[in-house]
Every structure is written in structure tokens, then in C-alpha cells.
Design a protein around this nucleic acid. Structure first.
Length: 730
DNA sequence: CCTCGTTCATAG
DNA sequence: TATGAACGAGGC
């Protein structure tokens, strides 16, 4: 994408962030403009933000065009980012203006750079030295030349602002106006890092070499839990910074950034820029501006950080690359891991995908040689990998309404005796997954969707885990009216906690489930307390699998290891494998290997076997083969199903039906990303809703849709189009 | 006949 | 998205 300059009066296409289909043509302003310039353009009665995108393209007669309003004070959008937005829009079947919106979501873009007044020592001497004046000058001395505002200086000196004013009037102090957003402190890549093990050293130097080559490439950094992946990729970051290019580290959860920032500070001597939904408006504005000026060397952020205007990006790290939170399923649908690869390929930049349990796509790409691969086998700082074993539930004598097998119970008791911590893992929130009436057999379902309601006893409510609806726990059956006959069926973590409390009355229990904590801060505090030994038994859902360390933990018991294997979900096996390995990896400490026990009814199931033996390659091979047999390439292409019609309700009904009842699509190997909650566009009177599908070739997808949709009766002039991405960048 | 609320097309 | 035009219901 070349940068073009347009003379005043030329016709240019301007991309706005308005919900249109594409660019609009305008007349270039006095003094001309260039591609990438941020401008303000008239749109109807409004003035909106836009970016000059290229030469005019509509062919409309000149007299119908309006003139670009004014140039905005922001670094022009570079060709790399513009190309990225275009390719990403194509790939995710998103209108380009919506992509621009992702890249311009920052307050005050284009408004005058605000100033702040700071003070430094002037040439004059004070006419009289008073106590307060001396304190001010002392405080200024102690500030070491860094910019200091009046309020800061007054507070440090314990004097009022008028003392400072007085000194300024005499020329003892000098006021200077600096931009409000200060650059980020320099990171020092030359500082010595953590000492690396032999394994880590090999991986680190290969990543350093890859970054140094200054070319696009992707490396899968695969390392078991505790093998020290972070130290290794921080070496790649160091290499990138040393070469004067910017680095981006993506993390799946905001909760993990605080700890990571501390590690960066320890490694490079200062804190990097941060970008995620929890960052304040002022800090966002600063980060956006500094990244655009190349004054932020390292950015740590969530997936949206991919759309920032880096000056010279040299490295993107996607940590925990298998994590499903990288999938954005609202508004613009994308997977940040894929978009990282796309952006890097357009910026001659390196990508590092780090995970203990890579996604199938990444594994296949590494296997086929498309990605390089670095493997860390040894654990760092911990004894050894946990010992894995199955508890065959067919041979366990377990009374009804209880779920902790005698074998597991003995193992937990032994750990408690030794003063160690145990984790009971059940990936099911709430008290019981099913609530039914013993009088008529009715199962309480959700009124808004087709899922069953889950009892949450702490909250005394029924909740729908699919759509979030909730209602008070009913006394009487909603179907037959029988009083007091509602029964809980099956276990959730809350019920498991009840059982554990009865079985181990002297143990201190802690339940970790995402719905039990109001704020991330409360959750963090609880996790820290547990890590320091405030609980003997932890009972948790998949929350505990996500990157938090429990150094005292030596036993993990999985209550229902088969849970994720039911259903026709294409990724069921992959997800179960990842989850089990991640949870098991929590067990073990420096002086003592851990143990993981999986309760299962099918110990011979290939997924369970793979989890137990750690035969990952064989497992991934089998998975890849299975998808090939479905006619699906190991990683699919994106396809969009676009529903369009004048009746918005009809469009949504069908969109939801497609997303929720996606079996026919899954059977042909397509992974469906649910419909956007709002129409993506309303064009020429027709609403459009789009589902995104990672799919096999177009033909089977189209055939499956036709078979499926035909009997659904398209209400209200509904139309359906299937749009298959013509190429894949991977 | 006027006012209010809602729906709908439209933007260069 | 945000605006204004168009329309219909209801009040005076």
C-alpha cells in the first residue's frame, strides 16, 4: 500500500467509522492531504472522524461532493495498519468502517494535544530566602530534573501554590508547557535477565535470532506448565527492543497483566504501556499517542491492542495462545491469535505463540513447517511433572448423590495429613446442573433460550449459563404446581463443596468459581490468600486452570474428567485435553512432585489416555486426521453466513437458531461463531446479521445450509447468503 | 390543527 | 451512529 499525496481540490476516498459499507468521496482540503491522514469530514448534518484512504472511487459528479473539513492533529495511519484493517475486514467479513472503529477507539483522538505546565529552576536568585521558598527549592532539587507540576511541587515542599507563583514572578522558577501525555520511561533491554536453564537458553537464542532477522515468521513456543516460557519470550522482547523496534505482548486475561507488569519491570527496569478495558481514559489517550510516536517500546494488552498504531512493530507474543478468550464474538468477530499472524506478516515482524497446550491449528502449522517450533521439556524450579493416573469409576463404590470416590477421598486425606493442599476440580458452576420436579418430571428450562436452568444455591436463584437469564429458585413446580418437590440432580462446584465439607470437617475449604466474586480484585485477593496457605482444599471450576500459581498444591483431583467429551462439539476433545493438562499442571512444588487423579468412566477413551500418558503428538495427529476425514483442512477458512431481510426479528430468530442448533454445521466440520447481538449493518432497508464460520470448503457448507434452512421457512423476505473467504493468509 | 412519539432512510 | 423527514395517534 503506497502513500499518495493529493493536491487541494482532488477527489479522495475517506474512510469513516460510521456504519456504512465503505469509503465516501470528498474534495481534498486547502493544502492537500495524503493517505493515512486523520481528517474531519461533513456527513449529513454532522462532522465525523475519518482517514484518507485513497483516490476517489465513487465516480459521483464533483458537485455532489463535499470538502474535507480539517486535518486532525494525530500521527497519520501507516500503510501497514491500513493494509491490516483491509485484510482483517475481508477475512472476518466485516465492513471496513467497523474495523476502523476498532483502530480508533481512544478518547480525544484528533483534539489539540493538551498541555500541562511544569516548573524548573530559572536563572535568578530569590530576593529574600524564606522557609517556604527554601523547601520549594529543596523539593525541586530532589525531583532530579523530571517535569513537576505546581501541585506536585507544592505538596512535596509542604508549601502553598502562591509561594511557587512568587518564585516564578522573580524568575527563580521558570514555567514550561509540556505535552500532557509524557512518554513512557525507556526500557533497558541490556539489563541481565533471569538465569536461564539449558533448555531455555537454546529456545531464547533461537527466538533472538528469529527476531534479529527482521522478517515475518511465527514460532510456536511450547512448554509444559512451569517450564519458564515467560523468561524465554522476554529474551525475544529484549532483542526486539535492542533493535529499536516495538514489541507487543498479548495476554488472554486482564487479571494476568498485573503480575506480568511486575516481571517486565524486574527485567527491563521500567513499566511498559498497558492496553485493555481496565485502563483509564487518560492512560489510553497517552498510550495511543505514544505508541504512534514510537515512544512506547513495549505494550502489554488484551486482543484490542492489535489495532494500535505502532510505528515499527518487531514482535508480537501471544501468551496462552490456545485460550478461547482470544476469540472476539461481539461486533467484529476475530481471533486475536490469527490477527496477530496477519498483522505480523504485513509488518515484517516476528510472532511467538506460547502455550503449554497449543491449539490444534497452531500445532498443525508447526508440524507442517509453516511455523517454527521451540519446545521446553524440563520444568524450571519445580521438581517434576505431576504423576497422572485415572480413577476408574466403574470400580468405585459410590453412594448416590456423592461424587468424591473412595480412592480420591483417601488421596485427599493423605495430603491433608501431610499438611499439603489439594484441589478438587469440577468444571461446572452452581449447585446442580439440572432441577427437576419429582411430581411430574418437569425440567426447568430457560424462558429465553433452549438451555436448562442451573441452580445457584449461594444466590438462591436459577441461572441460565447460555444467555445469562436468572430467576428466583421456585418453591413450586412451574409446570404442575406441586409444592416442595423440586430436586437438584447432578453436581456443581457448590454441591461438591458441600460434600467435601462433610467428608473433611476439619479442613479449610475455598471455592473458586467466577460467579462467586463480584470483582477481579476480590478474586485476586482470594487467590493470593490460598497461594499462601489459607485453605487446605480448593474447590474450583476452570478458573483455577488459568495461569494462577498455587505453590503449596500437591494433589489435583478431577471429579468428572469425561464432562467435556459429550456432545458433538468439534473442539470437545481438544478443549478437554487442554483443560485437563492445564489443571494437572498446577500440582507439584519445588521439593515434591505433584499428583493428578482423574475420575472417569472411560479410562480407555483416546482423549483420556492421551491426557494420562502425555502422548501429545499422537493425540494431535489423531485429531488432525479426524478433521481431514470430515473434509476439513486442519485449520478452516473463514466463511460468513449473512442473513438479510427487512424484518429484523426474523433475521435474529434465524441467526440465533443457526448458532444455537449448530449440529448440522458441526457435523461437516464447521465451527460456528454466534451471531452478533446487533445487526452489522442496515443497508438499503435490509438488516444484515452475520455468523462467522470456520469451515471446510464452500461446497459442503453451502449444501448443509441449504438442507438445513430450507425447512425453516424464511419469514418476511429473509435472504441468506454464504460468503466464503477466497484465501487464507495462514 | 397541533404536538408528541415512533419509524425509517440516509449520509459523498 | 445520529439526524431529520414522514407518519399516525391523540389532545384541544
Amino acid at each position: 500500500m503506497d502513500d499518495l499525496h493529493f493536491a487541494s481540490g482532488a477527489v479522495v476516498a475517506v474512510l469513516t467509522a460510521q456504519p456504512l459499507d465503505g469509503c465516501l468521496d470528498y474534495i481534498a482540503p486547502e493544502g492537500g492531504c495524503a493517505t493515512g491522514d486523520f481528517v474531519e469530514v461533513p456527513l449529513g448534518p454532522r462532522r465525523v472522524l475519518g482517514v484518507v484512504w485513497g483516490p476517489g472511487e465513487s465516480g459521483l459528479p464533483r458537485e455532489k461532493l463535499r470538502r474535507v473539513g480539517r486535518m486532525l492533529d494525530a500521527a497519520p495511519m501507516q500503510a501497514g495498519l491500513r493494509a491490516f484493517l483491509e485484510r482483517a475486514a475481508e477475512y472476518t467479513l466485516t465492513p471496513l468502517p467497523m474495523m476502523l472503529r476498532l483502530a480508533t477507539r481512544v478518547p480525544g483522538l484528533g483534539s489539540e494535544q493538551a498541555l500541562r505546565r511544569v516548573y524548573r529552576r530559572g536563572v535568578a536568585e530569590p530576593d529574600r530566602m524564606t522557609d517556604a521558598r527554601a523547601r520549594v527549592l529543596d523539593a525541586l532539587e530532589g525531583w532530579d530534573g523530571a517535569p513537576v507540576t505546581q501541585a506536585e511541587l507544592a505538596a512535596a515542599a509542604g508549601a502553598s501554590g502562591s509561594v511557587i507563583k512568587g518564585l516564578v514572578a522573580q524568575g527563580v522558577l521558570e514555567a514550561v508547557d509540556l505535552p500532557r501525555d509524557p512518554p513512557y520511561p525507556r526500557l533497558d533491554p541490556a539489563r541481565p535477565g533471569h538465569p536461564l536453564s539449558a533448555d531455555q537458553g537454546v529456545a531464547a537464542s533461537s527466538l533472538r535470532a528469529a527476531v534479529a532477522s527482521g522478517a515475518y515468521g511465527t514460532t510456536l513456543l511450547q512448554g509444559v506448565t512451569g517450564s519458564g516460557k515467560t523468561e524465554v519470550y522476554l529474551e525475544a522482547v529484549a532483542e526486539c527492543l535492542a533493535r529499536g523496534r516495538q514489541a507487543l505482548v498479548l495476554l488472554p486475561e486482564i487479571a494476568l497483566t498485573a503480575e506480568f507488569l511486575t516481571r517486565v519491570e524486574a527485567r527491563f527496569g521500567a513499566r511498559p504501556a498497558e492496553w485493555h478495558s481496565g485502563v483509564t481514559m487518560a492512560e489510553r489517550r497517552r498510550a495511543f499517542a505514544m505508541i504512534g510516536q514510537g515512544q512506547a517500546q513495549l505494550v502489554v494488552g488484551a486482543r484490542s491492542a492489535l489495532f494500535l498504531p505502532y510505528r515499527e512493530l518487531g514482535l508480537i507474543v501471544v501468551d496462552e495462545e490456545h485460550d478461547t478468550s482470544y476469540k472476539q464474538e461481539e461486533g467484529v468477530f476475530y481471533n486475536a491469535r490469527d490477527m496477530a499472524v496477519l498483522r505480523a506478516s504485513l509488518e515484517r515482524c516476528r510472532v511467538v505463540l506460547a502455550s503449554a497446550t497449543p491449539s490444534l491449528e497452531s500445532w498443525v502449522n508447526a508440524q507442517s513447517g509453516k511455523y517454527d517450533r521451540c519446545v521446553l521439556t524440563a520444568r524450571h524450579g519445580t521438581a517434576a511433572l505431576p504423576r497422572m493416573a485415572a480413577i476408574d469409576m466403574r470400580g468405585e463404590d459410590l453412594p448416590g448423590q456423592s461424587w468424591i470416590s473412595p480412592s480420591l477421598r483417601r488421596a485427599v486425606a493423605a495430603r491433608l495429613e501431610a499438611g499439603e493442599q489439594a484441589l478438587l476440580f469440577l468444571n461446572r458452576r452452581g449447585y446442580a446442573p439440572v432441577t427437576l420436579c419429582r411430581a411430574c418430571g418437569h425440567q426447568v428450562g430457560c424462558a429465553d433460550c433452549d438451555a436448562r436452568m442451573v441452580e445457584h444455591r449461594f444466590l438462591k436463584r436459577l441461572m441460565c449459563h447460555q444467555c445469562g437469564a436468572s430467576r428466583p429458585m421456585p418453591e413450586a413446580c412451574p409446570a404442575c404446581g406441586a409444592e416442595g418437590r423440586m430436586a437438584a440432580v447432578g453436581p456443581g462446584v457448590e454441591r461438591l463443596a458441600e460434600e467435601a465439607a462433610a467428608a473433611f470437617p476439619d479442613a479449610r475449604l475455598a471455592v473458586l468459581s467466577s460467579d462467586l466474586f463480584g470483582t477481579t480484585r476480590e478474586l485476586k485477593a482470594q487467590i493470593e490468600a490460598i497461594a499462601e496457605g489459607a485453605a487446605d482444599i480448593i474447590i474450583g471450576t476452570q478458573l483455577v486452570a488459568k495461569g494462577h500459581n498455587f505453590p503449596l498444591l500437591t494433589l489435583v483431583g478431577v471429579i468428572d474428567a469425561d464432562l467435556g467429551l459429550q456432545g458433538s462439539d468439534l473442539r470437545a476433545a481438544e478443549r478437554t485435553f487442554q483443560l485437563m493438562r492445564q489443571v494437572a499442571g498446577r500440582a507439584g512444588r519445588a521439593d515434591r512432585p505433584g499428583e493428578a487423579l482423574l475420575q472417569t468412566f472411560q479410562p480407555e477413551h483416546p482423549v483420556i489416555r492421551a491426557i494420562l500418558t502425555g502422548a501429545e503428538d499422537a493425540f494431535w495427529n489423531a485429531e488432525a486426521d479426524e478433521r481431514r476425514a470430515l473434509g476439513m483442512p486442519p485449520f478452516g477458512r473463514m466463511a460468513g453466513i449473512i442473513l438479510s431481510g427487512p424484518d429484523v426479528q426474523a433475521v435474529f430468530d434465524l441467526g440465533n437458531a443457526l448458532a444455537r442448533n449448530a449440529d448440522p454445521l458441526q457435523r461437516i466440520g464447521a465451527e460456528v461463531w454466534g451471531p452478533a447481538p446487533a445487526p452489522i449493518a442496515r443497508i438499503r432497508g435490509r438488516h444484515r446479521v452475520r455468523l462467522l464460520v470456520r469451515a471446510p470448503r464452500a461446497a459442503p457448507l453451502q449444501a448443509a445450509l441449504a438442507r438445513w434452512i430450507a425447512p425453516l421457512k424464511l419469514r418476511g423476505g429473509l435472504r441468506l447468503a454464504v460468503d466464503i473467504d477466497p484465501q487464507s493468509f495462514l
